[in-house]
Computed example of a mutant assay.
Amino acid sequence: MDTIEEMLSMLLDGAVETLDISPHLHQLAVDKYEEVGAWLAEHGTPDWRIYPQGSFRLGTVVRPNTPTGEYDIDLVCWLPIAKESITQAELKERVGRMLHAFVRWKQRQGHGDGPASCKATRRCWTLGYPDDGFHLDVLPTIPDPAVPPTGILLTDKQLRAWQHSNPIGYATWFQLRSQLDRHLVEAKRHANVADVPDWDVRTTLQRLVQVLKWHAMLYFANDPDNRPPSILITTLAARAYAGEHDLFTGTRNVLHGMGNFVENRHGRWWVPNPAHEEENFADKWNEYPERREAFIRWHTDLSIVLDDLVQLQRKGLHVLATRMSESFTSDAVQRSVQRYGERLRQQTTTGALRMGVGGLLTTTTAGPRVRQHTFHGQHTDPRG
Rank of each mutant, 00 (worst) to 15 (best):
M1L: 15
S9N: 06
L11G: 04
G14T: 13
A15Q: 03
V16W: 02
T18S: 05
I21Q: 00
P23A: 00
K32E: 06
Y33A: 02
E42V: 00
Q53N: 09
S55C: 05
S55W: 01
F56G: 05
R57M: 08
T66S: 10
Y71H: 07
C77P: 01
I81R: 03
I86Q: 00
T87S: 08
R97W: 05
L99Q: 03
K106F: 01
Q109I: 01
G112Y: 13
D113L: 08
P115R: 02
A116H: 09
A116I: 01
A116N: 09
A120F: 01
R122P: 11
F134Y: 07
T141D: 04
P143S: 02
L159E: 13
S165D: 13
W173R: 06
W173Y: 03
H183A: 15
A187G: 03
K188H: 12
N192R: 08
V201C: 14
R202P: 13
Q206I: 07
R207V: 15
V211K: 08
M217E: 14
Y219E: 06
D223N: 14
D225P: 09
N226I: 06
I231V: 15
I231M: 13
I233H: 10
T234K: 07
T235E: 07
A237M: 08
A240T: 03
G243K: 05
L247A: 05
T251C: 12
R252D: 06
N253A: 11
H256G: 05
V262P: 06
V262S: 05
G267N: 00
W269D: 08
H276K: 07
E278G: 11
N286S: 00
E287M: 03
Y288E: 07
Y288S: 06
I296M: 10
H299Q: 12
V305E: 07
R314P: 02
R314N: 13
K315D: 14
R323H: 09
R323P: 01
M324K: 04
E326R: 11
E326S: 10
F328M: 05
T329R: 11
T329H: 10
Q346G: 15
Q347S: 09
T350R: 11
A352W: 09
R354L: 13
A366S: 12
G367A: 06
V370A: 09
F375D: 02
Q378C: 11
Q378N: 13
H379M: 12
